[in-house]
Amino acid sequence: MARQIGDVILDLKNISLRFGGVKALTDISFDVREHEIRAIIGPNGAGKSSMLNVINGVYRPQEGEIIFRGEHRRNMDTHAAAEAGFARTFQNIALFKGMTVLDNLMAGRNLKMKSNFLQHALWWGPAKREELAHRRKVEEVIDFLDIEHIRKTPVGRLPYGLQKRVELARALAAEPQILLLDEPMAGMNVEEKQDMCRFILDVNDQLGTTIVLIEHDMGVVMDISDRVVVLDYGKKIGDGVPDDVKNNPEVIAAYLGTQH
């Protein structure tokens, strides 16, 4: 394989998150290495989405530390996370449904645009050059994910599978360092799943993007991820390469239940 897994770029240490009396996450630590595909799995309500929300700053954990590229912080806000290079997709698609695919992707590059509002309003000099440069970049992403034909279609009119792909495209448009995918294949049929798998692998392989993903389809997870974290009831019960995790008795118990 061309890609080389690098050093740890994201290190989560002893993260605990509570909502009132509900412990969503308890003392969870794991790391993510550069260029790897890292999966988070677990039964429903295990705290997987909460974990992603902690990473990109939607939730602020009560305890713990997030170390991204050597920088320590308790939490991020979503703006800072986006600026630092995190992009994500959501379990229930969060796209701008009234806007075209193209506009969605351009919005995804919002943070990268620097010219000010007045220049934009007048469509003048740097603003014009900038808009064109961003447009080029967006077209590359469109090309990469095979969505040329729906470029000008309002997202709300697209079928579910394509919306999922557009959401991935919008995340990619920001040229992220780490891509957080929350169930990218939920509700898809086999063919759509295969397509999505291929795209995720291509992104990882050709763009070198680090990927953290939540997925329920065990076949997919074991196939495409380099390492897997297993959560259950907000606690970490397993961590390692797919083969180790598969044979971990605690993981098997969590998924199949224990004998009493």
Binding site: N56, V58, T78, H79, A81, A82, E83, A87, R88, F90, A94, L95, F96, K97, G98, M99, D103, M106, A107, G108, N110, L111, M113, S115, F117, H120, A121, W123, R170, A171, A174
Partner: peptide, 23 residues
Amino acid sequence: YTRVGRALRAVADDHQAALSIGI
């Protein structure tokens, strides 16, 4: 046609998605 305008439309459309792309 402006970046801010696009951000405004994005926020109007979906708060969560807008937050995730750093608006």
